[in-house]
């Protein structure tokens, strides 16, 4: 095996005046790519309260409680402190009422600040619009 003294040196000198590979993070941010799994969000107008997301969430981060039975009002709480950002809720939702945004800076001083509440009226089930991606659904 051949040995080469100071084999790394040419590469080092080449990089001395090159742009750095790191970025000055809090001041300069990289953009998340298309399809990034950030924070889950609910589009309340589409939700039919089937609770598929609650059942499938591996972190038990979604909670749906009835607020008023007569008005068909419900409250969904997304516990972002528990969320593992797997986007299974998006896959499980039969009406595309769940989505993921690109938010990833979720640090907070209190875990309760990370809770997001949605209070909404249950919508009537509409047949699912066929979309281009053939994402699989698990059936019951």
């Amino acid at each position: 095996m051949k040995i080469q003294i100071l084999a790394f040196l040419p590469e080092l000198l080449k990089h001395l005046f090159r742009k750095t590979a790191t970025v000055d993070y809090p001041f300069q941010k990289l953009v998340a790519p298309e399809g990034f799994r950030g924070t889950p969000v609910l589009y309340p107008e589409k939700c039919i309260v089937c609770k598929a997301c609650v059942r499938d969430c591996p972190a038990e981060a979604i909670e749906i409680v009835p607020v008023s039975e007569t008005e068909k009002k419900f409250k969904m709480t997304i516990h972002n402190d528990r969320c593992v950002h797997c986007a299974q809720c998006v896959d499980s939702c039969p009406t595309d009422a769940m989505g993921m945004n690109k938010e990833f800076e979720l640090a907070a001083f209190d875990r309760h600040n990370l809770k997001i509440d949605y209070v909404y009226v249950k919508s009537t089930p509409v047949p699912r619009t066929p979309i281009a991606t053939n994402t699989p659904k698990t059936e019951n």
Binding site: D56, P58, V84, C86
Partner: peptide, 12 residues
């Protein structure tokens, strides 16, 4: 946990 939940558990 159910199988689909375990999928994400085993990932971790």
């Amino acid at each position: 946990r159910s199988y689909i939940q375990n999928l994400y558990l085993t990932e971790r």
